[in-house]
Deep mutational scan, measured.
Amino acid sequence: MDEEYDVIVLGTGLTECILSGIMSVNGKKVLHMDRNPYYGGESSSITPLEELYKRFQLLEGPPESMGRGRDWNVDLIPKFLMANGQLVKMLLYTEVTRYLDFKVVEGSFVYKGGKIYKVPSTETEALASNLMGMFEKRRFRKFLVFVANFDENDPKTFEGVDPQTTSMRDVYRKFDLGQDVIDFTGHALALYRTDDYLDQPCLETVNRIKLYSESLARYGKSPYLYPLYGLGELPQGFARLSAIYGGTYMLNKPVDDIIMENGKVVGVKSEGEVARCKQLICDPSYIPDRVRKAGQVIRIICILSHPIKNTNDANSCQIIIPQNQVNRKSDIYVCMISYAHNVAAQGKYIAIASTTVETTDPEKEVEPALELLEPIDQKFVAISDLYEPIDDGCESQVFCSCSYDATTHFETTCNDIKDIYKRMAGTAFDFENMKRKQNDVFGEAEQ
């Protein structure tokens, strides 16, 4: 370990593993360490099931009705991949897709007046949907046509809207959309967690709705994908990429100290040895004095023996409960997957309800979601602090990732990755940087 590296990475969460992969592909010498004996950090999948019970201090362990412990891979952080989103792009560019198998999530649902409705995925579904009345549908269709044709580089498509100054509230007004449709559009399509976006320039919202539609167009059922064997497969896929390009991995490796000289990182000390480096990437748990708390998320993992009611017996789905429907500031989400994804025993389902904490009784906040899941065989409640770095790391060369937020997709995580890359490399992130180099010394032969 007593060696000189360009970059040392602490923690094998998804953000850290993707950055480690990119740095290795770009010719950097990388050492990647984790104090845990497993990959994934906060974003790991726990197996066998006995391990999950232990982690949540349920000492009696799983009953026999849960089947074989080894058949379970339970995500600690519930997220899906947008089919046309940035993480899929990263997987394709790096060819990490060859280590993973994905399934399309069967449906996306939205909560309205105590019931759940399928988010329409085709024009026919939209016309048949009970989510809105006849005239509302016509106006909504006009709005969707506007979004589909919108091109930020072609003012002819703006229809009198200025993407940089017109607020989204004004765009909704222009198409005369009612409150329910606005809730549905902002939260189930643009996937905002709160209503803060309404008074911001509309460009980002329009682009988010386009991303949803384009992702949906790829597979038809929903815009989301999920990897077989759980999300823990993602960091491992990128760790393989890093290793192929010469990255060194050490799990179960305690970090005793991060060594600084004149305010700059110069190395990491572990078990009496020092590895030197020019730059350091880590998750917040490794540098508690360089991060601040930015809120909390509650996630309740529920094991069920039945599909969720009114989802047409889907073996995977997402449910969004827009905040307006339950008098909150932030949406509540449910991600459900099952034995069909090799993450649970035969006939079992895993539904994870999550939201940003707003009160001193977080469990009560998630109740509307839990009511949709009854009866629940077993619950595991996790309340996590969200951390963000206190500075950009440019001076110390210590670059810290943000905690995983309450969103049900990876777009915010990818933004964090691109942002850290830019601060480390001094140049904007470009997907081309992730391409495997042809015929290089570490390149794998085609399968």
Rank of each mutant, 00 (worst) to 15 (best):
V145E: 15
L373P: 07
L241T: 01
E233K: 02
S20F: 06
E214A: 03
Q179K: 00
V161D: 03
R292K: 15
P368T: 00
V119C: 14
G85S: 03
F143A: 04
I417L: 13
C302W: 02
S316R: 00
L87R: 04
F380S: 04
V357E: 03
G113S: 15
S330I: 06
I259A: 06
F380Y: 06
Y349C: 07
T359R: 05
C400V: 08
I420L: 13
M134I: 08
N315G: 09
P254L: 07
G393S: 07
N207G: 15
T408K: 00
V398M: 11
H32K: 03
L189S: 08
G272D: 15
H341C: 13
F56N: 09
I390M: 09
R169I: 14
G263F: 06
G21H: 13
Y404D: 09
F429Y: 13
T407Y: 11
E358A: 05
Q378W: 06
Y333H: 13
E50W: 10
K118G: 03
N439T: 11
S316I: 03
E152V: 07
A294Y: 15
G230V: 01
S403Y: 00
Y404S: 10
E95R: 15
V441T: 11
G295V: 07
T427Q: 01
A351L: 05
D2T: 03
S316W: 00
R70N: 04
D151Y: 03
D101H: 11
V161G: 04
M434K: 06
R141P: 08
S213W: 14
I281F: 04
F158P: 14
K278G: 15
Q279W: 14
V441G: 01
V297R: 03
K269G: 15
I281V: 11
P322V: 04
N73H: 12
D2K: 04
K435P: 15
D405N: 08
K118T: 03
G13R: 01
L280W: 01
E271H: 10
T97V: 15
Q57C: 14
S43R: 00
I390S: 02
S45R: 14
N149W: 14
V334F: 03
L370P: 01
Y333Q: 05
N327G: 02
T12A: 07
M33V: 11
G347L: 03
G247C: 07
R299G: 00
F102V: 09
E16D: 02
F143W: 10
I77T: 07
M33P: 11
E432N: 14
D154K: 14
E106A: 02
Y387R: 14
L228T: 15
V7L: 11
N153R: 06
G160A: 02
V147A: 10
E125L: 05
R173T: 08
R208L: 06
E123H: 13
G295R: 08
S121C: 02
G186C: 03
